[in-house]
Each structure stands twice: as structure tokens, then as C-alpha cells.
Amino acid sequence: MIRTAVIEDDPAVLAHLCRLIRESGDIEVSCSARNFVEGTKLVEAGDYDVLMCDLGLPDGSGIDLIRKSIALHPQSDIIVVTMFADHRKVLDSIKAGARGYLLKDENLEDCVPGIREIRRGGSPINPFIARKLLERFQPDMPDGPMEALSDREHDVLGLLARGYSYAEIATLLGISTQTVGTYVKRLYRKLEVSSRSEAVFEASSRGLLGGL
């Protein structure tokens, strides 16, 4: 059983999500929260394999909860629950450590295969995010230390940005669909690391971390 925690302020969406998860058979809802304060306690308790987290909580930012979860339970996976056009927020949560996203519209049903996929090591992505990643990893980006992409990673990202699916990419590049998902996860990891080192770089260059 995959233990999943859900943090979502909209009761309808929360109820829907919980129902969908419970109906899956192989996934259970271990705990849930409806605001930042409850969410903090939930994260601190850490009773989950997958954390589904809404970003726009009434009393705080879901991004902070994601960071906290990554710090306390790095082995847990995080899926961001968001509205359909929040690409920037999705990217911000990937930087914070999230590895998947779920759109809060008619595709809520996708949450179950999404949770299974993320536990298998894959990560969902959409062309908008792929494109933003491509921009971020451009070799001549002037903002701070940025780990370079391998040629393969670059190819994968390019195809994703042009709308190709994991399966199509797998066929085109002669690799398994699983591997494409792993590439994406690795790209997310690079973004997270580089974002973190960017933050350190920025802090140290502003003299906030004097001794560093």
C-alpha cells in the first residue's frame, strides 16, 4: 500500500481526491489537512510515502510545506495540486522538491496513475514546463551556477517541449518509457539542486552567509 497524505483547502476537491485514492485499492489516504497549520503538523508527523499538496493555502504557502517535507523526509515523493495554468508555480514547487503535479480540473482522476508513476520513479511533465526548463538550462544563462544538461537530457527536453509523449520519445530515442520518466526526474533534481545552490550563491554574494 502506498500511504498518501493530502493537503487541500477546497473541501470538494479534497473529498473527491480522497474518494479516488481510496477506490484505487493499492493506495490509502494516511492523513489529510486543510490549511497550512494542520499541514505543518502533518508534514512533521511524516506518516506518508506521497504528499499531495495544494499551493494556495489560506494561511500559508504550500511551497514552504514542500521544502519542509523534503528536509524532513527526503525519501517521500511530493505531488503538487494546482489549477490548470499555474506553470510558474509548478516550476517553483519542482525547485522546492516536488516531483509531480496534478491539475485541479476535470483530470483529478489522473491522481491515482500519477501516484503510482511517481513511486515507480517517473515524473510527469508538460510542454510548458519542459520549455521553461530548457530556458533555465541554457548554457549562457547568466544567473548563478547552473549544472549543464547532458546531450541526451537536452534531446529529451527538446522533444517534450515540442509536445512528444514519453512513449513517443522512448521510441524515437530507442529507450524505455520508464527511462524517459527517470530523465525527467533527474532534470527536476538538477533544477532543485541548482536552485538551491543559486540561493546559496545569492545569499553568499549578498554577504548573508558571512562565514561561507
Partner: peptide
């Protein structure tokens, strides 16, 4: 890119 978004 526009096509990709459309597909999505």
C-alpha cells in the same frame, strides 16, 4: 511549442 501546448 504552440502545437505542443495544444496537444497537452
Amino acid at each position: 511549442v504552440v502545437l505542443a501546448g495544444f496537444r497537452h
